[in-house]
Every structure is written in structure tokens, then in C-alpha cells.
């Protein structure tokens, strides 16, 4: 009995000291980043540079993955729909699953591992090699000059990447469904257009990807800034960024889906 109480107490202390404390610190860090975001927009080239590293460099992986996910959806979806004699609904199946779920979520997961890890590693290394301290000593605020542009670069890139993923996916589904299998092209598009709603599906998808973008880049810049200034510390922080932001994306997706499509 006493040992169980001891164990619970140790666990509680750890949770409070480590997780709750870190969450509070991360929140304060986010507010600080938002407060010092002025230069990211006044000197927009700082942010443009980060959009290049977060967005443009993620293009290849996003476009190729989107195409393949769409093609697989086309194949699998056709197989299932043909059993019920409604293979013309393939366009609906492909587009709705992409626009509502797969586009934002898979693009966010890819973004977390491609751009999020890079952001953490870069900031962590800048900290480990005292570049952030040097900046601080030059009377330049590293949060305004280094953190905020990376944050906004990621946040602005994410919705565009998710839209590209979905568009490529729909194109992939079209290639397999219409060109390869021979579903009627007219009904493929018209059924899709009848079923996909702009407000309900497209806008909600964009909102989702924006939220994911905020979550991932927040985690990435925070983990980098908070990393112990050693090689081991930076590599562990990079891993943590990918793990935590992937979990955060999936959990947020559930919450957002429940709010948007179930009206909770």
C-alpha cells in the first residue's frame, strides 16, 4: 500500500514538474513569439526565407505523396464501390476523404517530419553553438529575429501544402479512376462537385491545416529553443518534435472533426 502511494506520488511529481511546467513554459514562449512578431512582417524577407525552407523544400515530398495517396484511394475505392454498383461515386470518395481528412492530416505529418525536424535541429544547433547568445549580446532579440520568422514561415506554408496535397490526390484518383480503369469522366467530376461543399469541406480543411501548422511549428521552435545545448540534446529534441507533433496532429484532428462535422 505504502509503495503504491509512493509510486503514485513520484509519478505525480514527475507529471507536474516536467509536463505541466513545460507546457506553461511553451505557452509563455508562444505568447512571446507572437508579441515579437512585428519584424517578421515588417521585414518580410525574413519570413520569405523561412517559407522557402519550410514550404518550397517540402514541395517534392508533398506532391509525390499526394499523387500516390490519391492513386491508391482510386484503386481501393473503385474495388469497394464496384461491389455496390456505384463506381461513379469514386470522385466523391476520393475528394471527400482527401479534402476533409487525408489532405490536412497526411500533409501535416509529412510537414512535421520534413520541416518541423529541420526547424528544431537548426534552432537547437544555433543555441548549442552560442549563436543565439551572440545575437542576444548584439542587442538583437533572437525571438524576434530567429524564432518568429520560422514560426510564421511554417504557419503560412502549411495550408498551401495541404491544398497541394489534396489537389494532387484528386488528380491521382482521376488518373487511376478515369484514365486507367475507365470510370465515366463526366459523372466522376459532377458527382464530386455535387457532394463536396465549399464551406463545409474546403474551408474546414483549410482551417484544419492552419491549426496543424500552428501546432507543428510551435512545437518545433519550442523544442529547438529548449534543447540542451549538446549534440545529444539537439538530436533528442528533433526526435521529440516529430513524435509530439505527429501525436498532436492526430489528436487535434479528432477534436476538430468532432467540432466541424458532428457539431459538438
Amino acid at each position: 500500500m505504502g509503495r503504491i502511494a509512493e509510486l503514485l506520488r513520484a509519478l505525480g511529481t514527475r507529471v507536474i514538474n516536467h509536463w505541466v511546467w513545460r507546457l506553461g513554459f511553451a505557452t509563455r514562449f508562444l505568447l512571446l513569439t507572437l508579441k515579437h512578431s512585428g519584424p517578421s512582417f515588417r521585414r518580410f524577407y525574413l519570413t520569405v526565407r523561412e517559407i522557402y525552407f519550410a514550404g518550397v523544400l517540402s514541395l517534392i515530398i508533398i506532391l509525390v505523396s499526394g499523387l500516390f495517396v490519391g492513386m491508391v484511394l482510386g484503386l481501393q475505392g473503385y474495388d469497394t464501390l464496384a461491389r455496390y454498383g456505384s463506381s461513379e461515386a469514386l470522385g466523391v470518395l476520393v475528394s471527400l476523404s482527401l479534402v476533409r481528412e487525408l489532405g490536412p492530416v497526411v500533409a501535416a505529418l509529412l510537414f512535421a517530419s520534413r520541416a518541423g525536424s529541420a526547424i528544431t535541429a537548426e534552432i537547437g544547433l544555433m543555441k548549442a553553438t552560442e549563436q543565439l547568445d551572440a545575437m542576444e549580446m548584439m542587442a538583437v532579440d533572437p525571438i524576434a529575429r530567429v524564432i518568429a520568422p520560422r514560426f510564421w514561415g511554417g504557419v503560412l506554408s502549411m495550408p498551401l501544402l495541404a491544398a497541394l496535397f489534396s489537389a494532387m490526390g484528386v488528380f491521382g484518383g482521376y488518373l487511376v479512376g478515369v484514365r486507367l480503369i475507365g470510370v465515366d469522366e463526366g459523372s466522376f467530376w459532377s458527382q464530386m462537385q455535387a457532394a463536396v461543399d465549399f464551406r463545409e469541406d474546403i474551408v474546414n480543411g483549410v482551417i484544419k491545416s492552419f491549426v496543424f501548422g500552428v501546432a507543428i511549428t510551435w512545437i518545433a521552435v519550442f523544442e529547438g529553443y529548449d534543447a540542451p545545448p549538446t549534440a545529444e540534446g539537439v538530436s533528442r529534441a528533433t526526435t521529440r518534435t516529430v513524435v509530439i507533433s505527429s501525436l498532436a496532429v492526430l489528436a487535434l484532428d479528432f477534436v476538430l472533426t468532432a467540432m466541424m462535422f458532428r457539431g459538438l
Binding site: 544555433m126 552560442e130 547568445d133 551572440a134 542576444e136 549580446m137 548584439m138 542587442a139 538583437v140
Partner: peptide
């Protein structure tokens, strides 16, 4: 106050993404 101070860090702490020129020009 710091704008009137300069500090040379242990291993230089040059900004790795900027050239030597841009490093000096940074401040």
C-alpha cells in the same frame, strides 16, 4: 547598453547561414 559592448564567444558563434561578409554586416 549591449550595443556599446562586443562579445567574442568561445568558438566564434558565427551565424552558419550567413557568409563572412553578412556575419560582420549583421549588427
Amino acid at each position: 547598453m549591449r550595443r556599446k559592448m562586443g562579445m567574442l564567444f568561445q568558438f566564434g558563434a558565427l551565424f552558419t547561414d550567413l557568409s563572412a561578409f553578412d556575419n560582420v554586416a549583421f549588427q
